[in-house]
Design a protein around this nucleic acid. Structure first.
Lengths: 227, 227
DNA sequence: TTCATGGTTCGATCCTAGCCGAACCATCTT
DNA sequence: AAGATGGTTCGGCTAGGATCGAACCATGAA
C-alpha cells in the first residue's frame, strides 16, 4: 500500500512499556547492563533479554560486551531525537506517568568496577593521563608510554611485574555513569590497589562504593589531576 | 521507577500498521475522510473508525465535522515532526516495506510520496538538479545552492518562506520503485504544489498516482530535465 | 577445580487488541 | 416520504506477543 520507511515496526518496538522504559533509561543513564535494565523496566532477566535482543536487532540500541557484562546504549542521535519527539507529543497530550528514581551520588563519584576504579574520579584521571601522554594506542588497545611508566613508578607501582600473558596491562573500560572510558587491566587494578593500600580510600562492605577520605582525595587529585 | 511523559502509549498507537498508514497519509497536509482513510489503510470502515477514535482520543489527530463527512488531520506540527523522526530512524535501520506486487505503470512514473513527488520523473528530476549544482551536501544533509535558489525562484517558488526550524528544507527520500533518491522536505513539497497549481498535473482521488497532462509533462521536463 | 553471577534459550500460558459481520444512527438526495 | 451514503457501536473470533519458570551457557571469583 505504501512505500517508504516502515514506521509502524519502529513505533511498535517503542510501544511496549518495558521497552519504552529501557530506552528512556538509556537516554538519561547512558550505558547500562541487561540486569540493571531489567530492574528499571520491572521485568525478569529473561524478558529483558528478549526485549534487548529485539531492540538490538532493529538497530535502535547497540551493545558492548565487557567481560560477563553487556552494556547497552542508544544506537545513535536520531534515536534520542525520536524519543524526545515522542516525549514532547506525550507531554502535550497529557500522557504523563509519575514515579521517582533516587540516585546514589557516592556511587557515581567513585566505585569499584571488577578490580579497578570507576566513576567520575576515575574517568577524569584517565582522561588527564591520556592528555599527559602516559598512554598511546587506539581505543581498543592502549599501552603505557615511557612517561606513564615513569610516573607510575613514582607511586611505587612497578609496571614490570604487571606484564602478564594472561591479562592485558592496560584496557579501556566503559564507565556506565559517565559514558566515557576509564582505565582497566592490570595497571588499572594496581592503581586501585595503591589507592586502598595508601589509605587514600576504603571499599565499603556490601556495595561497590569507594569512599575517599578528604586527604586521600586530595592526594589522588594531586597526582592524577594536577591543575 | 521512571517519571516523565508516557511515550509507550503514544508509540503503541503509531505502532499499528493501519494507524501508521493513516497518520502517514495525513502528513500530506490534507484533511481526509474516514472512508478514504479506510481505503488507504486497507481495512473496513468499522476498523478504521475505531482506529480514528483512538487517535483522536490520544490527540494525535483532530476531526472536523462537515455535513455527513468527518475530515481528519494531524493535531499539530509536533506530530508531523514525530512521524518524520520515525521515518528517519526506520530508514536508517533498513526497516523498509517491501511490496513486490506488479506496479501500475502510472504509479511508477509519478506519484505522491507523503507530500512530495516520487516516481521515475521525480528521480530523474532530482538527479538532473544535482548534476546542475542546485544542491550541495552529503547524503543525509542536502542544501539548496544559490543556483538552485535562483532556479526555483524562476518557477515562482520563494524558498525563503520554506525555511523552518521544524522541518528540513531539503531531504533525500529513497524512491522504492527506482531504488534511487528523490527530493523530499519542504522544498520537495513546494515543487509538488507548484506542479499541481500550475496545472501540469493533477492528483487522483483515491490513489497516490499523479497524472501529468502532455503539455504539463513537457513543461516539467523543459524545466527540470533539459536536454 | 568449584561456585557464583550475568545473560540467553525454550516451552507454555495468558491476555490484549485488531479485525470483521451485522445492526444501527446521521445526514443528504430524490 | 424512501433511498443512498458516511460513519459508529456491539459481539465474538483470533493471532500475536509479552511474560515467566526452568534449564542452560559463559565468564569471573575463590
Amino acid at each position: 500500500m505504501k512505500d517508504g520507511p516502515n514506521i509502524a515496526r519502529v513505533a511498535a518496538l517503542i510501544g511496549d512499556c518495558a521497552r519504552a522504559d529501557i530506552l528512556t533509561a538509556l537516554m538519561a543513564d547512558r550505558a547500562l547492563t541487561a540486569t540493571e535494565l531489567a530492574g528499571i523496566a520491572d521485568v525478569t532477566k529473561q524478558t529483558a533479554s528478549t526485549h534487548l535482543a529485539k531492540l538490538v536487532d532493529a538497530r535502535l540500541i547497540e551493545v558492548e560486551k565487557q567481560g560477563r557484562h553487556r552494556y547497552f546504549r542508544l544506537a545513535g542521535r536520531d534515536v534520542a531525537q525520536l524519543l524526545e519527539s515522542l516525549m514532547g507529543v506525550a507531554f502535550r497530550t497529557g500522557a504523563v506517568r509519575l514515579r521517582s528514581s533516587p540516585r546514589e551520588p557516592a556511587l557515581r563519584k567513585a566505585r569499584v568496577c571488577y578490580d579497578h576504579l570507576a566513576g567520575e574520579l576515575a574517568v577524569a584521571a584517565f582522561e588527564a593521563m591520556m592528555a599527559r601522554g602516559w598512554f598511546f594506542g587506539h581505543v581498543d588497545e592502549v599501552s603505557l608510554s615511557d612517561a606513564g611508566w615513569d610516573a607510575l613508578a613514582g607511586l611505587g607501582i612497578d609496571v614490570s611485574t604487571l606484564q602478564s600473558a594472561r591479562r592485558p596491562a592496560c584496557r579501556m573500560c566503559l564507565d556506565w555513569g559517565e559514558r566515557r572510558h576509564h582505565l582497566a587491566g592490570s595497571v588499572g587494578a594496581a592503581i586501585l590497589r595503591h589507592v586502598i593500600d595508601a589509605g587514600w580510600a576504603r571499599r565499603t562492605a556490601n556495595s561497590r562504593i569507594v569512599v575517599f577520605d578528604p586527604r586521600g582525595e586530595q592526594a589522588f587529585r594531586d597526582f592524577f589531576l594536577p591543575a
